[in-house]
Design a protein around this nucleic acid. Structure first.
Length: 232
DNA sequence: GCGACAG
DNA sequence: ATCTTGTCGC
């Protein structure tokens, strides 16, 4: 892959990202469909899991799709590897299951990225849907300590602009890194992640998608629609 | 120049 | 992401 071309494309697409102010943009309503993505890779095959859940409502199930991976992974250009695969899987969810999302949750970054364009922003621009990124590692350095209680946050800034937060989802566990991808505010992004991370460090939909993708990659689940997995 | 670098 | 078991702790 040509890094210069990717960089140009990244900067061009980043200009399309919209991050509303605190009181505007997407705010989940009861019954909204939230779709959460995760991927496992074997060689150049991507095993994608889409967890479907209603806001304040039922866990609907998981859609599984196997796809070829078009691009290799280049650090800070993760969106170009995983983004197209997430996009294809979401199109299949619409076409095969007639399910459309009100908001997408991505295992990765939104605008908390060196060029403000993580995979959540990529998918947001492609779908014109609100997206939230939640990552286990940060790409941007930040200073200061974060309080140890659940709900504590620390701003992740670049050029004095807040791009996301380190968020403690459980008392005395490592924080996760939350940032809006598109069409949602910083504070709403944190609220959604905190709401979903009621018991573990990672939000439950991400855990479900991760587990489903792993089982799918091991051939323990079949491609297509799967009823909700039991237990936690 | 060297190391670090979401998934 | 993946290569990899049991073990410790809440």
């Amino acid at each position: 892959m040509d890094i210069k071309a990717l960089e140009a494309q990244q900067i061009e697409m980043a200009q399309q990202v919209v991050i509303p102010s605190e009181n505007e943009g997407y705010h989940p309503s009861e019954g909204d469909i939230l779709v959460t993505f995760d991927v496992q890779y074997i060689q150049e095959e991507a095993f994608v899991a889409l967890d479907v859940q209603e806001w304040k409502g039922a866990i609907k199930g998981t859609f599984l799709k196997k796809l070829p991976t078009p691009n290799s992974y280049v650090p800070s250009f993760f969106a170009f590897r995983e983004g197209p695969v997430l996009w294809q899987a979401y199109q299949a969810l619409i076409e095969e299951q007639s399910i459309k999302a009100n908001c997408l949750l991505i295992d990765g970054h939104g605008i908390a990225h060196p060029r403000q364009f993580g995979v959540a922003s990529w998918l947001g621009v492609k779908t014109s849907l609100p997206t939230v990124g939640c990552a286990k590692q940060t790409l941007l350095k930040f200073h200061g300590g974060i309080a140890s209680n659940r709900g504590a946050t620390l701003n992740i800034q670049q050029n004095k602009q807040t791009l996301g937060f380190a968020l403690r989802t459980q008392t005395a566990t490592k924080p996760v890194f939350v940032s809006p991808g598109h069409l949602i505010s910083l504070s709403q992004s944190v609220d959604i992640i905190l709401e979903f991370a009621s018991r573990y460090r990672l939000p439950e939909p991400i855990r479900r998608a991760d587990q489903a993708a792993r089982a799918f990659a091991k051939n323990e689940l079949e491609e297509g629609w799967n009823a909700p997995m039991l237990l936690g």
